[in-house]
Simulated scan of single mutants.
Amino acid sequence: MPDVRPCHGIELLGDILAGAFRATDPVIARKFPPGMPERERRLRGFLDTWVAFMLGRGGSSIVTGDHNGAMVREPARRGTPSGSSTTSPRRRGRRPGAAAD
């Protein structure tokens, strides 16, 4: 198992996430298309802002010891074990429109 530890460094997390998403992620490519003027600066600004937002609201993050991987997790919400912000019927294992138990 890789060495992982908590991390609160917005710049470090932004660097790792930018490296992971800049080339192949379709959502990032749509929002920040290759060839966009100042693409790298805008991508980093977006990721740094998102990381700061998540951590500032009680989220958590970890990095691998070699700084090749990172995770930023949404803050946990009251009453949900995973911190998920959705309460859709599909998440609870029921079809939409099905009667509640």
Rank of each mutant, 00 (worst) to 15 (best):
R77A: 14
R73D: 08
G56K: 08
M1Y: 12
G14P: 00
R94W: 03
S60Q: 13
V51Q: 01
V63L: 09
P75F: 02
L43N: 02
E40M: 04
G9V: 00
E38N: 15
S60P: 03
A99E: 14
I62P: 00
D25V: 14
A98S: 14
A98Q: 13
G59L: 09
R22C: 00
P6R: 14
G9Q: 15
C7D: 06
P96E: 01
R77G: 12
D15L: 01
P6V: 09
T86K: 12
P2V: 15
I16A: 01
R42I: 08
G45H: 03
R44C: 02
S82T: 15
D25K: 10
P89I: 09
V63Q: 01
L43A: 04
G19C: 03
E74L: 15
H8R: 11
P37L: 07
M1E: 13
L12Y: 04
S61V: 11
A76I: 13
F46T: 02
S85Y: 10
A29H: 00
L55N: 05
A98I: 08
S60K: 14
G83W: 12
R94E: 11
S88K: 12
P89S: 08
L55P: 01
R73K: 13
M36L: 13
S61W: 03
A18V: 11
G58Q: 15
T87P: 01
A18K: 02
I62S: 03
A52N: 07
P6W: 02
T24K: 10
D15E: 09
S84A: 12
F46M: 00
G14C: 01
A99G: 13
D48P: 04
R5F: 04
S84K: 15
A20C: 06
T87A: 14
S82H: 05
S85W: 13
M71T: 13
R90Y: 06
M71R: 06
M36V: 08
F21G: 04
S85K: 14
A23C: 01
A18H: 10
P89V: 10
